[in-house]
Structures are given as structure tokens and as C-alpha cells.
């Protein structure tokens, strides 16, 4: 796992959450620019997925167990795309709020992924 990537995803996810959260407060549905933001975050998460799979294949093992680690990895990959699709069906402020919630969940999952892998220096 690359700590810088995990940190970058966490920060990007929180920015996305703040952005979509602000749109929800202003009574706006998700717009094209939001989806570009979601795509950027999703690409970062997919890069993390690839890196993690390569490291697992190379014999490295997360400190707290491979099963839990992979479960969190898949959850992290799904959070933003899933809520993004929900916001396509929900063309109100609540679509933006849903994406914001998905992004916060992603940020939390990144912190957990960091812990499960073994924290600093891993």
C-alpha cells in the first residue's frame, strides 16, 4: 500500500463530500462537474485497488487479515460510483447529499484500510 495514495484519496473524498454537501445545502442536484469529480476519485480508488492486488500477489500481507482488507478495498471502490448512480435517479438536492455521504464513507474506509494494512511504514 502506498500511504501517499491513501492520503490523496482521503483528501479527495472529503473535498468531494464538501462540494456535493454544499450543493445539497443550496438545493442543487448533482451536475456534470460533480461527476468529473466523482470520476477522479474513482480513478484514484481503482489505482489503489490495482496496487493492493499487485502487493497481495507479491506475497505481502495486511497486518489484520487479508479477508477484512479485501472487503474494505471492495467497499472503498464501490462507495462513490454507487452513490453517483443513485444521484442520477434522484435529481434533487438529496442526490447531492447521497454522494456526499458516499464520499464520507470512502474517507472513513481509507482510514480503516490504512490501519488494517499495518499503519505507518507499511
Amino acid at each position: 500500500m502506498i500511504d501517499a495514495l491513501t492520503l490523496a484519496i482521503s483528501v479527495a473524498a472529503l473535498l468531494l463530500a464538501a462540494w456535493c454537501g454544499a450543493d445539497a445545502l443550496r438545493d442543487r442536484p448533482t451536475k456534470d462537474a460533480n461527476f468529473v469529480g466523482m470520476a477522479v476519485v474513482t480513478l484514484l480508488v481503482l489505482a489503489q485497488l490495482v496496487v493492493a492486488v499487485v502487493e497481495l500477489a507479491g506475497g505481502e500481507r495486511p497486518q489484520d487479515g487479508t479477508v477484512i482488507f479485501v472487503a474494505y478495498l471492495l467497499g472503498a471502490a464501490a462507495a462513490v460510483p454507487a452513490t453517483g448512480f443513485m444521484s442520477l435517479a434522484e435529481r434533487t438536492r438529496w442526490g447531492s447529499a447521497t454522494v456526499a455521504a458516499g464520499a464520507v464513507v470512502l474517507a472513513v474506509l481509507e482510514v480503516r484500510l490504512y490501519d488494517i494494512w499495518g499503519g505507518a511504514g507499511a
Binding site: A82, T83, E90, W94, G95, A97, T98, A101
Partner: peptide, 20 residues
């Protein structure tokens, strides 16, 4: 729908999280 959509997303997260 509406605010319910947000609840659906959060309940999905907690179902998957607590379940797995």
C-alpha cells in the same frame, strides 16, 4: 426517493458493513 434516497444509501452501507 428524496431524503429517503440518502437513508437507503446509509442503510446499505450499514447492512453491508455490519453484515459482513
Amino acid at each position: 426517493t428524496g431524503p429517503g434516497r440518502l437513508l437507503v444509501a446509509l442503510y446499505a452501507v450499514f447492512t453491508v458493513g455490519a453484515g459482513s
